[in-house]
Design a protein around this nucleic acid. Structure first.
Lengths: 337, 337
DNA sequence: TTGTAGGCGTTATCAT
DNA sequence: ATGATAACGCCTACAA
């Protein structure tokens, strides 16, 4: 930067201001600085900037390790967050830590490394959130706590998604539907989206006068296969199956095939919050009620950055609506059953 | 650190040396410093350290964006790299960039942000490698270029894996086997592991007197399903199928089921370099010739760090051997076919 | 074995 | 609108 200043014939502070735009600089000077920067192919040193300024340009993405490894939906969230951060000249640090803990992130903050943190897999009751708040770590949640009045978050709108899915099945004439949810442990852990989706499905089904049967399945093909076959045996009236997550899709389709239920002629299937990638990869391609997972990561990163840069008008709280993507697994309910 | 020095009654440099251990410090002083650090719960500022010292403590993990999004095998590599880095007080930056490019990483280096970079999805002929070398970016590849004489890498031992798989099938009495590889584009792009696995399979099959038929399938269930059914129709003698990658597994099992081939009674299936997670999730559970994907990420990060810290005796080049994990998809070849 | 002081490359505070 | 200069917090010769 010294070199740039010398070449442009101005002082270092002028260069700094010309680049950051924090104080008015004359056109002429600015152009000379720009030219010198160009000439020397100058790139500011980020460590020095971090030391001297108030922002380091780093965000931590806190990824719980003891859960089932990330599925495609999550990957897309993460990568999108990294890309959004980059657009705004921030950098994303991948930080793994056991589900309940956050001491590591707190240390990152105290060591002057990060400006804030993004939290994944948010539970309804979060020790991490209060702990990090207390440590003055700016936070944006991907997901929500039970009562997220005061913090920033970006989350899927569970109620809207549930209502959309149930309404669609209702229109198609289905009267009895099943829901294959995640393992019981996800409920016990209090994962927000899991509980909200379930509750919302129950509510929507009631309002539409639909019969809803819920079941849990571990996140593997064998388990969801077995769960769906058991369920169809116990509830022969069921003509549609809702499944949450990337993980259940393969098993559900598999199970239905194995008991000679044709999809969608005999039974319709809807994937909730399933990544397009997985929906398109399955066979037949799965109709989903979902949104682009990338929006979750992208908006969370941008919300964090806006808050840090003081560009936002207050706390950002976003609920992403889902859309119905009709693919090949939904059809009118079979008649005469 | 000033506070620590004052509290311990020594100078800042003594504190610095006591913590880094770069020069001899008396037991007594060291203890006092340690105590003071403890008292104040002091954590060094990493930006200042990065500015003053020669290392920043950051590594970039370069992730090509325009390929199919990361599968579980890759995720585990990435997370393992992040965790290994952390153990050594380094931090992993997630850096996405289109497949051929590396200008962004070069800039990271020039901006004094990173100490080195980890490269994923390495092709046999790599523009990125030579470009980054020229820019003096320390590199460790996860994968190999065609002729990786001088650089650091950690890669799967393709020849050993191929030989192991072929030998196993041979022992089980199979005489004609099929290989469902990745899309043709992966070959055209020159992805190292893809080409090495294919070539090695051909070689091993020849040596064992096995007939090998190869096919390519796009990375989705429908494509691999169709590919395997077509292939079985064209080559009725085939009694075993090898599949590379997480992506092909579901389709292969699906396809065989759809043409009423029982696995493993009629046809055996082996997954090559498939993550344990996917192998266990499938149904039936897939026999694999693979290794822990985490080793790839972990060793790459450690190799990089050792090189940076000068702890390594020269260039690190690792080929990870695979192991046969017998699950439920391999059995002796059916007799009388 | 320990202390002193200069420098790393920015940003921020005073002046002008 | 611009310049000089002091932090920022640590590392590392150099001196003692």
């Amino acid at each position: 930067m010294n070199d740039v200043a010398r070449l442009a014939g101005v002082s270092v502070s002028t260069v700094s201001y010309a680049l950051s735009g924090v104080r008015p600089i004359s056109e002429a000077t600015r152009d000379r600085v720009r030219w010198a920067v160009e000439q020397l192919d100058y790139q500011p040193n980020l460590m020095a900037r971090g030391l001297a300024g108030q922002r380091t340009g780093f965000l931590a993405l806190l990824l719980p390790t003891d859960e089932s490894p990330a599925d495609p939906f999550m990957i897309e969230i993460i990568v999108a967050a990294a890309e959004a951060a980059r657009e705004r000249d921030y950098h994303l640090l991948l930080w793994t830590e056991p589900a309940g803990e956050s001491a590591g992130v707190k240390d990152l903050m105290r060591r002057g490394l990060i400006d804030g943190a993004l939290l994944l897999s948010v539970r309804l009751r979060e020790d991490r959130v209060s702990a990090l708040r207390k440590a003055n770590v700016p936070l944006t949640l991907i997901g929500r706590t039970q009562d997220p009045v005061d913090g920033q978050f970006v989350d899927s709108d569970a109620e809207q998604a549930a209502e959309l899915a149930i309404a669609h099945l209702c229109e198609l004439g289905h009267r009895s539907v099943a829901y294959i949810g995640p393992p019981r442990s996800a409920y016990e852990d209090g994962i927000g989206i899991v509980i909200r989706i379930h509750d919302s499905l129950v509510t929507s089904a009631e309002q539409h006068g639909l019969r809803l049967t819920s079941a849990c399945a571990e996140r593997n093909v064998a388990a969801s296969t077995r769960t769906v076959t058991d369920l169809m045996a116990a509830e022969p009236d069921v003509t549609a199956v809702l499944a949450l997550d990337d993980s259940a899709i393969a098993g559900v389709l598999n199970g239905l095939r194995s008991i000679h239920c044709s999809v969608p002629a005999d039974v319709s299937v809807i994937g909730l919050l399933v990544s397009p990638q997985v929906a398109e990869m399955a066979w037949p391609k799965v109709t989903t009620v979902s949104h682009d997972p990338r929006d979750l990561g992208r908006l969370a990163a941008l919300a964090m950055i806006d808050a840090l840069d003081g560009a936002s008008a207050g706390t950002i709280q976003v609920l992403l609506p889902s859309e119905l993507a009709r693919r090949s697994t939904t059809a009118p309910a079979p008649v005469g059953r």
